[in-house]
Design a protein around this nucleic acid. Sequence first.
DNA 1: CAAGCGCGTAAAGATTGCGTTAAGAAAATT
DNA 2: AATTTTCTTAACGCAATCTTTACGCGCTTG
Lengths: 227, 227
Amino acid sequence: MSSRVLIIEDDPVIRRFVRSSLETEGCEVFEADCAGRGLIEAGTRQPELLILDLGLPDRDGLEVIRDVRSWSRIPIIVLSARTQESEKVAALDAGADDYLVKPFGVPELLARVRAQVRRQASMAVGEQAVFGFGDVTVDMIRRRVTRAGEEVHLTPIEYRLLTALIRGHGRVLTHRQLMTDAWGPGYAERTHYLRIYMKQLREKLEQSPAQPAHLLTETGVGYRLLS
Amino acid sequence: MSSRVLIIEDDPVIRRFVRSSLETEGCEVFEADCAGRGLIEAGTRQPELLILDLGLPDRDGLEVIRDVRSWSRIPIIVLSARTQESEKVAALDAGADDYLVKPFGVPELLARVRAQVRRQASMAVGEQAVFGFGDVTVDMIRRRVTRAGEEVHLTPIEYRLLTALIRGHGRVLTHRQLMTDAWGPGYAERTHYLRIYMKQLREKLEQSPAQPAHLLTETGVGYRLLS
DNA sequence: CAAGCGCGTAAAGATTGCGTTAAGAAAATT
DNA sequence: AATTTTCTTAACGCAATCTTTACGCGCTTG
């Protein structure tokens, strides 16, 4: 993980405890035992994650959240002994990203830290989700399908059917499964539609639609997409 | 808040319950009662947040998380009756952003939804100042649109619609998405406005408005700006 | 070998969605 | 207050899409 994490927590036991857990994960950890010091550390150390105790001696935790949020968007995970729902709501609405009630398990804390860091990191770059088979490319984000570079137009149902097949690629998907996925529940019995739409997909995507290489029939069961 | 939220949950009671809570917050809500259908909805509805029950009938919730994560980064909030820490860790590490144990309080759920949506929004794509397609230039800062050097006058809604298309250029944007972006929530259903305003934009920006090269129709789905 | 089943293919009908026009209502400008 | 601009509503024809119907082929089975 190797992130820079700042802990603002007045209880030295918990602080050291959380610190060592994070360090075994490969994080670089900074500490502060009160709000004033914490805000300074946050400004100078430029951490990528903030773990904040709400019950600080010098100032209310909510103030700290608002202060940090006025100049930064780093993820904030709140630790607190207060279990009241209103406390959670207040902290989250003040700008916290997660709220963990004490006592908490270290594995859960670490998992939540990982989740926040991962998210932060993944925001940085714009990747794209594309699935390919043969000379076909399916861009799930742009909702675009190309064949040999040329864009292929699919109708709404054709597209939904294709994505259903992609999600289970390799596996055999039953008629009913595909029908409810692409058409919705209540259409499960009209499996005849599948034959019509599979033909259209083959026509648009297969090299020789009569001898499909990827959109395969599993007689008596359903269909399967081979990538 | 006005976000598009997809709920994948097999228990119809909880589903309706969560749905109405979200709707009073101004969200547009979609539902699915199983994993297969949920994944299709996620791919075609383009929600901004996913609320996922781990105990689905047809597939394991973790699989759903991984599947979605393979092509999307939308925030995922997991609901589950399982309180075991290992379950939480597994879900978070699979790609979930938050984990809420049933039974949960609605205010807390809503606060966590707000936190996720807020974060998502603040991360929003590094907006570039000027965008161009064909012989058209759009300066988002000066709010100026030119075509072949000549300034083009756009009405407020025309401009908002255009910038909504630009924000998702390349992607297919659904009718509802464009409506809420350009008109605001509450107008999601009046998709026929789009036809009128798309015509006006084409008239003002396309070389041959009847055969648009950039402002494309995706029948049954929405529109797309090709740069 | 004939009957039945599942699948592929084709084409016509029904439905939905889109483009287009025009005119009235509301808002902004003068 | 008058005028212009912009937004909303309604209506209609056409195109895209979905659904229905029909038929032929190959395979299995009695």
